[in-house]
Design a protein around this nucleic acid. Structure first.
Length: 645
RNA sequence: GCCGAUGUAGCUCAGCUGGCCAGAGCAGCUGAUUUGUAAUCAGCUGGUCGGGGGUUCGAAUCCCUCCAUCGGCUCCA
């Protein structure tokens, strides 16, 4: 007999060789039907794998991430089996589960898979799944594994095997398909009820662009048909929120082939929105002691040689601009910090001056590979809400707190309710790849960790994720439909002060090296606006909305009154317009709803008589009649509520 | 940059097994209508069918090439 410990601490004896399914059955038949895999002493096992010794058990169902992963991993096998049956002779790379489903990298040889083939594969997968195939775990020696895949002629699997340790190799056989695999898998394929192959793409073998490109097929599966439907609804919702689509519909920005790929053109409404964001941050930064600076869009190549960026990125940048006579080379600036370092260097500094905070909405240009461009989130010219804080090592902590305060204020003003903080630290086993003294790193990392605790941030610590020049703190927001976006960042930099030989005179009358902190609460205006659009689905907070109110006269007869209302609103600093087309109210309302204008003010005979408006709020419908003053107060109250600290 | 797909009016799309003058809806313009909480009616305007080259008597349609966009890969100071 062996002792099995349950998550609640209960211990019960079972026969040696018992499986997780057996154990689940002893609890309830229903549970047993839903068990997908099991955690055995912290390792994920097949629910059908015999347990030979005392162990802690955890049963995974669809509600556990590990359970889903088991289903998706099994689905990758299922898909491979289907593909192998349909297109014999294909070879397989790797086929893991991912955050939302799974993929398999396949060398399809002569055959080119296209989207049209996906339906056939899906059908075959469902057929196989219904066959209730089991996944049989086979422990093999390295030689046996090599023999199998040599005979099969799958060089990819052989390459994977060559890196494995003999004695730890397992194969899984399900139906006609045998795969090199660590497992675990679901008890049988009938648990996979719904299949959707989502896309097909090229992917380099082992992520190496010098190696062969395989065909990657992405898919997702579910244990209930209804879950697939829900998933498809979510995909639809994401499509509706796509900032590229909404950006066009709401006339925020556009691109022109003539201007160039990845170079966004901000349309009047988008520019207004962006300006409002900038003004908001400028105001907040002014209060926080930032000093605005302005630097040019190009810089001499020597600037980037000093900063080190030339060596690292020079080859992958836009080609330099040269002067006609002297032949001097200038680069479009890919970042603002080198310029800011030179501003710091423009005069000597005392420790009493620090911290110094230079802020600039600086437009930078980076050559992104053509396949990388994506709406406003990945562009070749963008504006960072950049600032560089020059301070002493002892001031890092306070400065971080100051920046966090700004970031929190922004999140609040834009209704980002959920976010996580990530602190990226250096790899403790590889300290030599980082610049800066051990003592300084220790100091900065400790300071950042303490700040997170003191500010009550839920921070994830990730070792080895720091840049070579310093540790950093990043903020990841969750948008309205649960997607994660990386936004604000705060980074400590020991490198640039060194390279630019920055210094200040300390109380001891000696020269000291300041620390530099890069920070951008929005990141870039382009990316931030994109995320904001997707988060609020184009329904911007009132204070940002390019058009806050639209006046809808019932007929031409009320045009004069509509203009009086407009004047009142303009005088009250409210952005409004009149829809004076000779359309029916229903049509005007429909169009205003589609344009996502927050307040619709309907004016007709009654309103004119009593000097009021009939208010309809976007997405809510009729909310009643208000006086003009009441309306203005309502709008102002809502605007300022979100922007407050 | 790589793999695959796509590119027709301002927008969304049809036509694309080569052959009447390239179509529709919305938007725009003109006129009628004077309207009460998500689409009033009629008429009109608008397109080098992404650019270039080729095959053909004839190309939006077939081929080549370049560009852009989309889904991924690689990259991201």
């Amino acid at each position: 007999m062996i002792n099995i410990t349950f998550p609640d601490g209960n211990v019960r004896p079972f026969e040696a060789g018992v499986t997780a399914i057996d154990i689940a059955k002893s609890l309830s038949e229903g549970l047993a039907r839903n068990v997908l895999s099991a955690g055995i002493d912290g390792e994920v096992w097949d629910a059908t794998r015999p347990i030979q010794k005392d162990a802690k058990i955890q049963l995974y169902t669809w509600n556990d991430p590990a359970g889903k992963a088991t289903v998706w991993h099994s689905s990758a096998h299922l898909m491979a089996e289907a593909i192998e049956q349909l297109y014999p002779g294909v070879k397989f790379g790797i086929g893991p589960d991912i955050e939302n489903g799974f993929y398999y990298d396949i060398d399809t040889g002569e055959k080119t898979l296209t989207e049209a083939d996906l339906t056939d594969i899906e059908k075959r997968m469902i057929e196989i799944a219904r066959g209730k195939q089991t996944f049989n775990r086979i422990e093999v020696s390295k030689a046996e594994a090599e023999k199998y895949f040599t005979e099969k002629g799958d060089e990819y699997k052989l390459e994977l095997i060559s890196e494995l340790t003999d004695g730890q190799i397992t194969l899984y056989k399900s139906g006609t398909f045998t795969d090199l695999c660590r497992g675990p898998h679901v008890p049988d394929t009938s648990m996979i009820k719904a299949v959707k192959l989502t896309s097909i793409a090229g992917a380099y073998w082992r992520g190496d662009e010098k190696r062969k490109q395989l065909t990657r097929v992405y898919g997702i599966t579910f244990t209930k048909a209804k879950e697939l439907e829900e998933y498809l609804v979510l995909l639809e919702e994401a499509k509706k929120r796509d900032h590229r689509k909404l950006g066009k519909e709401l006339e925020l920005f556009t691109f022109s082939q003539k201007v160039g790929a990845g170079l966004p053109l901000w349309l009047p409404k988008g520019a207004q929105l962006r300006e409002r964001l900038e003004q908001f941050l400028k105001k907040v930064q002014k209060e926080a002691g930032y000093l605005p600076v302005i630097t040019p869009h190009i810089g001499n190549v020597n600037l980037y040689k000093t900063s080190g960026h030339f060596d690292k990125y020079g080859k992958d940048s836009f080609r330099p601009i040269t002067t006609p006579i002297e032949g001097e080379a200038f680069f479009l600036k890919p970042m603002n910090c080198p310029h800011h370092c030179e501003i710091f260097n423009a005069k000597p500094h005392s420790y009493k001056d620090l911290p110094i905070r230079y802020a600039e909405f600086g437009t930078v240009y980076r050559y992104e590979q053509s396949g990388e461009l994506h709406g406003l989130t990945r562009v070749r010219g963008f504006t960072q809400d950049d600032a560089h804080i020059f301070c002493t090592p002892d001031q890092i902590k306070t400065e971080f707190k100051g920046v966090i305060k700004i970031i929190m204020r922004i999140f609040k003003a834009l209704d980002f309710k959920e976010f996580v903080t990530q602190i990226s630290l250096r790899d403790p086993n590889n300290k030599e790849k980082y610049i800066g003294s051990d003592e300084n790193w220790e100091k900065a990392e400790t300071a950042i960790k303490e700040v997170a605790v003191e500010e009550g941030l839920e921070a994830i610590l990730v070792e080895g994720e720091a840049a070579f020049y310093g540790p950093k703190m990043d903020f990841m927001v969750k948008d309205a439909i649960g997607r994660k976006w990386q936004l604000g960042t705060i980074q400590v930099d020991y490198n640039l002060p060194e390279r630019f030989d920055l210094s200040y005179i300390g109380a001891d009358n000696d020269r000291h090296r300041p620390v530099m902190i890069h920070r951008a609460p929005f990141g870039s205006m382009e990316r931030f606006v994109a995320v904001l659009v997707e988060h609020c689905a184009g329904n911007f907070p009132l204070w940002l909305s390019p058009e806050q109110a639209i006046i809808l006269p019932i007929s031409e007869k009320y045009q004069n009154y509509a203009e009086k209302v407009l004047q009142f609103l303009n005088n009250s600093d409210i952005r409004a317009l009149i829809d004076d087309r000779s359309e029916k109210a229903g049509k005007k309302i429909r169009d205003a709803e589609l344009k996502k204008i927050p307040f619709m003010l309907i004016v007709g005979e009654r309103e004119e008589a009593e000097g009021s408006i009939s208010l309809r709020r976007h997405g809510q419908g009729d909310v009643g009649t208000f006086s003009l003053q009441q309306l203005a107060d309502m709008i102002h109250e809502e605007e300022s509520r979100m922007q407050q600290a």
